[in-house]
Nucleic acid binder design. Structure first.
Lengths: 335, 335
DNA sequence: CTGAAAGCGCTTACAG
DNA sequence: CTGAAAGCGCTTACAG
């Protein structure tokens, strides 16, 4: 049986209240007392029971996190980054993965965070204002990649990123460009619509056509990229360049293109999104998103509001710049 | 403020004890009473406070999970699968990602599961018996991909999988084969050593050489595969076939090979591990691991022991078969 | 089948 | 700076 606060108290010769104060670093504890308590706690390998603390204090010291599966590099990274920031601040993180709209609804119905977390971060999962407030139940919440009025939001400048990618291809002489976006369109999800809009707007202002069959939707995975590429290559006249919504997709797409006998980047230019480590290795041109910035900011905002409920009375909305990293996967169009 | 058990009790006109019993489906509650209580709870949107339950019952209804980061498809899948099984049984999952030996040691020091979980699953994170028992502190634990005496373990037959892959290449006439394994070698981690052994043993029994420079180690990611491939292709006489330890690695490796002007599979045969969805799409020959079986079994074992501490007094050790799925990325050696 | 009461292990005003 | 005491919201023997 693990030691309790009373064990520590009697070993240190003080009251349980003093142990509690000393160990949590509260003020108004004599330095000598604190030292004595610390030694006793160490000796007994004491850690406060989180359930008892939560019940007594009315705080769980846990953060909820909603992510759309962790199959994608950027979401796996977000999970790790948020866990790091939270742990640093003495918070656990309770992640829930929401892979489909069905799961999302069952999550909403099951209240997985009810009384379980003090605040939460929602990362790129399609929720509207109402659903998000149902999840939060009055607790601090920050959203990544969502457009929501009442809560803190941070997202990458997806429009500018894809616009830059499109311009890059135009500058290389491409006039038949395809865009493969995420299949999970949603009013409040920033990426899918902003990217698409960045693509379309750039082509339009250059006077270049963007027929519907050049706008494809697929899963944000290598498999999804491979599937979309197959589709595009099945057409009588395939595009000369393609922008896909993640680097994973790009890898899958490039592999299929090469399987089909295309020589890259001569026959086809490819651009991904995220600029995850592999992009540099395989020379993939990619729209870099500052994933650490997105994840850490969202997490810190929640911690801030937890520490001081009066901070930033108005919801914060930040857009983080994206950068096009040009590499060898894009080249001048074949003439 | 969310409703408490007393709110439900007074609304239903019964005692808190009866509410507790009725809602948890315990026997010895009149059907009519149970119905009445359920309606009251629904009306008040009541969910029992997990902290209070945990404190009173001495159980947290939470499972701990240790995974080595979630950047890899198989680990992300395991997280999802285990979450599903656990939720089904009324348990939450508290995952901790351990990406480096440094993090592993700090996890051991910080007791992240102390009083926080009822049992735990450890998936492919290098722990020895002593460390695992320190984590478990007497609670049920199951390990995936680890060779440990005192606890339930389940792993894929990595030796047979890589042996089959190697035989396949030999049958295709390859005599210069490279193997790229995981950089995280560890006495108790099954995959790295079993795979390597399967590779070496198969070549030896066929009388084929396996010089040291054909045994490479790298990260289990597309980046790691790309890096290893670069290394191998820098040699004066590159191998004609390569087995890499994950499908992600294979994608990275193939991309680099093609970038360098090789034509696949004519100039180079490639085999991955896992057979994740993308493998089928890009025609990658891969050693299929039954990830759902691994994850679900481990999770169920823990739940079983939680339900009945007397079950299976002896630790269980199961090895799950692997299957080589042959596709177009492997072909006869060029003559 | 149901209820009253104790207790789980903490934290937090309140006194001193 | 420290302690005694109440209380957080449940569950669980124990009685009936």
């Amino acid at each position: 049986m693990p030691a309790t606060i009373d064990d520590v108290a009697s070993l240190a010769g003080v009251s349980a209240a003093t142990v509690s104060r000393a160990l949590r670093g509260l003020p108004n504890v004599a330095a000598a007392t604190r030292e004595k308590v610390r030694r006793a706690a160490d000796l007994l390998d004491y850690v406060a029971d989180p359930a008892a603390s939560a019940l007594a204090a009315g705080r769980t010291s846990t953060l909820g996190l909603v992510v759309p599966g962790v199959g994608r590099w950027s979401h796996a990274r977000m999970l790790e980054l948020i866990q790091d920031v939270a742990l640093e601040a003495g918070y656990d993180v309770l992640p829930v993965t929401v892979s489909t709209p069905g799961v999302r609804d069952s999550v909403l119905a099951r209240h997985p965070f009810r009384r379980r977390v003090d605040g939460l971060v929602v990362a790129e999962v399609p929720f509207d204002e109402f659903q998000v407030s149902r999840l939060a139940e009055g607790r601090p919440l920050a959203a990544i990649g969502l457009e929501l009025d009442g809560v803190d939001t941070i997202c990458a400048d997806e429009f500018a990123g894809i616009a830059a990618a499109t311009e890059h291809l135009l500058a290389l002489g491409h006039r038949d460009i395809a865009y493969v976006g995420s299949a999970s369109q949603h009013d409040h999800l920033v990426a899918p619509s902003a990217r698409r809009a960045g693509f379309v707007a750039t082509l339009e202002s250059a006077g270049v056509a963007h027929p519907d069959h050049r706008l494809v939707e697929s899963q944000l995975s290598a498999t999804g990229g491979a599937a979309a590429m197959s589709l595009l290559l099945d057409e009588p006249e395939p595009p000369t360049a393609i922008i896909v919504a993640s680097d994973e997709m790009a890898l899958g797409a490039m592999e299929v293109a090469r399987l089909r006998g295309l020589s890259l980047p001569l026959d086809l230019s490819v651009i991904g999104v995220d600029d995850q480590p592999v992009a540099q290795f395989v020379g993939l041109t990619s729209v870099r998103r500052d994933v650490p910035r997105l994840a850490q900011t969202a997490c810190r905002w929640v911690l801030e509001r937890l520490a001081d409920p009066a901070v930033a009375p108005e919801p914060r909305h930040v857009v983080v710049r994206t950068d096009l990293v040009k590499r060898g996967s894009t080249a001048a169009v074949r003439t």
